[in-house]
Each structure stands twice: as structure tokens, then as C-alpha cells.
Amino acid sequence: MNWESILTQTFSQGFGTQAVVFALAAIGLNIHFGYTGLLNFGQVGYMAAGAYGLGMTVYWLDQSFWLGIVMGIIYCLVLTLVLGIPTLRLRADYLGIATIAASESIRLFVRSRGQRTRTGASEGINDFADPFFDLNIFNKPGSQSYRFFYWEYRAGDLWVMLIGWTVVALCLLITWQLMRSPWGRVLKAIREDEDAARALGKNAYAYKLQALALGGVIGGLAGMFQVIRTQSVQPDTFNPTITFMIWAVLIIGGVARIWSPVVGAMIFWAAISGLEAFLRELIRSDWELFGDTIGVHAERFLNLTVQNVSQVKFMVFGMTLMLLMRFRPQGIFGSREEMALDDR
């Protein structure tokens, strides 16, 4: 077993560009669900809105990348209105179904052939983020890779990470400030009991719309980083499973805690990548870890191949989500008392 390569995968991914994307998306979801109690199962729709707002500006409108960022935010705000106005008066579970349906609608729409000139349909939009990478301070002649201990990144990824974690820090700061303010107190009151908040004169609908917009825009930023890091906007990147992964990230870290999206994203990606690297290494080395007798049987019994490693990854993900909800709904580091997920 090549443990070094497994550890490198684990540590690198734990802080890598994927973790940035999921941390941001989960910060948004935390504002929605953790603080306001909005059951949003369509966070990936916001990611798509941000990503396509950026991509379409460059590809279809032929405008600059930087204007695209602004457009991405505007797309998210528009989506908030389209999504929020009809659904925010609904009961939580209806809202959940409506949001997942909306996010799937977005995916089906942008990948349809009729939109090819605007969204690139199923082929998507590629190589649109050059202006971002032109500013990369890590570019150097020769080798484009950096390594410190177990962390190994390409120059481009390092640049995305630098900007990405900075944006994450900024979003955390904003969330922290807002949630200690009277505005955040009203959100929490709405989460606990909307009627009580209304009886005290709080316009619950307006607050929910504001929270949806804020969390949505942060989700949109996540979508932008997702497409910037790969230089490619692909409609099928934005499928419902991504939303569920964001939920897992949030639950791992602990719902309604400021740091949970970051902690959750790091643990989630480290674990997922570590597991995958471990399994691949296991296959490559012919189950060396378990010795000849067990290894050979296990190999035949489990029928694990290079092709289905990623399926095992998702099985473990699904199971982890179940076990977490059952045994530690407050998250890995959360305490039961202040858990916001309880009696709802």
C-alpha cells in the first residue's frame, strides 16, 4: 500500500477547491435551514444560477468575465424571487419538494437543445475564466505544481483556493455579524415558530425572502467557484445529489453553527477522497493489506473494480448521512442542547 499517496489525496482534497465550493454552498444552506428553518432541497439550483449567470455572460452575451460575476449574483436574486414568492408561504415539506423541483427544472432547461446558443446545452460552456487565471500569482515557469508535506496542488488550484477561502472567510464574517444582530434573532424566531414571530409584528415572509436571497447568493458564489475551478460549465454538474452532499456537509459540521460549513466541507472531502484513494490503492495492490487468504476472497466476494470504486463512495456517503441523522444529528462537534434540528 502506498500510504503516502492516500494521505496526499486526503489532505489535499480536504482543503482543496472542492471543499471551497461545498463550504460556500453550505454557508448558504446554513442561513436557509440552520438559521431560518427553510427546508431548501434545491441549493444546487442556486449554484447553477451563479454558474450560468457567469458563463452565459461570457459565452452568449460576449461580455467580460467580471461582469459575469455580477450577473451571476443577479441571476441568484432573480431565482430567489421566482422561487420564493410562490413557495415561502408553504409548509416546510412542500417547500422542500418545490425547491428540488425548481433546481431540476433549471438543469433540464439549460441542457435542452433549444438553449444551445445561450447555455451551450449539454456540451456546456468551456474556457471562459481566463481573465481569472491571468491574475494567478502562483504561476511560475517550469513545473506548475506545489507540494508541502502531504499537500499537493497545481498552481491554478492554489489560486482558486486562495481567493476561494478568502471569500469563505468573508461570508463567515457576514454570517457571524448578522446572526448576532437583531435581524438574526428574528430569523431564529421564525425558525422556531413563524406564527409567534408574526404575532410580535415581524414580517416573516419578508425575512424569509431576505434569508433565501442571502443564502442563495452565497450558493451562487459556490457555483461560480465550481465552474471556475474546472473552466467549464456543465449542466449535469448541477444534479440533486450535489444538494444532498451539501446537506451532508452541513450536518457533519452541525446545523446552525457558524463554523460548521467549513469544518463539514473539509471533513467530507477529506473522507470521500481518502476513501476513494484507499480503495483504488487496495485494488492496485491486489488487496495486499489483508494478506493472501482474506484478500483473494474479499476481492472475489466484493467484486470491487476500478470502475465501481466511485459507486462504493456514494454508498458510504448515503449510509453516513443516515447514520449521522440517526446518531449524531447535532453534527460531529455539536452539542445536543443547542441543536437547531431537533423538534421540527
Binding site: 450536518i251 459507486q311 448515503g318 441523522m325
Partner: peptide, 19 residues
Amino acid sequence: LSLIAQMVITIGLSIFMRY
């Protein structure tokens, strides 16, 4: 267990079974 927690469990179950 709250209904929302159960709902998230069914999501996990769905992913688990599918894979």
C-alpha cells in the same frame, strides 16, 4: 426522531440503495 431528520434519512437511504 423529528420528521425532517427522518426525511434526510430517506435521502441517505435513497442514495445508498441506488448505488
